[in-house]
Design a protein around this nucleic acid. Sequence first.
DNA 1: AGATCTGTCTACCATATGGTAAGTGACCGA
DNA 2: TCGGTCACTTACCATATGGTAGACAGATCT
Lengths: 206, 206
Amino acid sequence: MPTSNGVTDGTSTPARILDAALASFATRGYEATSLDALAAGLEVRKQTILYWFPSKEVLLDAVIDRSAIELSVALEGSLATAGTGWVRVEAVVRSVFRLAARQPELLGLVREMGRLGPPAATRFVAALEPLVARASQFLEAEMDAGHMRRHEPRLLLLAIYSTVIGMLTEVELLRALGEEPTARSLVRRRAEILDLLRSALVTVPS
Amino acid sequence: MPTSNGVTDGTSTPARILDAALASFATRGYEATSLDALAAGLEVRKQTILYWFPSKEVLLDAVIDRSAIELSVALEGSLATAGTGWVRVEAVVRSVFRLAARQPELLGLVREMGRLGPPAATRFVAALEPLVARASQFLEAEMDAGHMRRHEPRLLLLAIYSTVIGMLTEVELLRALGEEPTARSLVRRRAEILDLLRSALVTVPS
DNA sequence: AGATCTGTCTACCATATGGTAAGTGACCGA
DNA sequence: TCGGTCACTTACCATATGGTAGACAGATCT
């Protein structure tokens, strides 16, 4: 079992590499991340990275796969919440914000995926496809039941997605608007977005 | 006057460089864009680019400045629309979509700005600051007048921005959702987003 | 005509990058 | 104890990148 190598801390080397790669891909971007820089940050030689992940692209795929799984687990969990339509939407949004507070890199990667071409983005989207399908069906069912205003479910999903990701990852814009990326600000943004979504979605305002 | 060089088409060389750079920065990203590739696409040597723009970073700044001006002009124009609150919001959103149809690269650049660190993003945001201030004041005034639900104006602006940009630039996600980036789809997305925004913002649903 | 300026080009260069080849020491089962 | 595997290393390499230096043709000015 290659869990410990005898000198480093408890985390295995490939896991540490994935962590660092995720962080760098999410913030600096895939192309702007060099294996050398990654290795330097890990206090390891570049060849160690290439030992575990034969190429940079393979590393990206690995980061994508692991992140997609983490995202799926977190969201599927909150999607399983019982209750009326809006409560479940709120639960999902809250869980995304929780994720953003704990692992901002994950959301950053999601954002970065949109920019990366078909090889990477397709893989990511494919991995999250079941989640999207579930969410889409849920929204449609709620509309049929009259709990939500009628919209094109997939476009609605895209709109919600964009808003949430934007509110969470547009750090520069936030700063320009006078919102420092603190925990307090995060809570305010969450309240704001929930308010907006409820107004837009729920049939009976009250 | 360096308007024509005798062989190329009517557009001046620096303008052509800016066009190509904008397109590439917006789609492939700044770091992933090489001066050589840019030059090859223009059928010009790389040194010609470096003659007009002494470094890649200067080129980026030039692209940013020009794009910020174009954006400002287009949006300030539609912000000047008369009418009640919602009509003006709708006018602005429509003009952004019009811009997206005519110059998708411009929106792509906006998206890319968020990812680029403080040197570039700050410049861009600073250039658009007056626009943001105007929009923010407008929203606040409309809320005071009771035409719109009360929200934090700057956060509301960020949410609208995120939604619109997302609906316009998340090409990969759109494709995964079965929405090919056609003109018809653009119209549907516009209708969807306007519907959502109206529900979320306007006080009297009716 | 000769000098100068403009726009573009050829010729290089230092550095960084992703990747290959081969080595080294620790551990481990036979 | 010995061969082999595992995790990681040093030593290189081909290529691409942003950028510098300087040549050259045509236009413009004096």
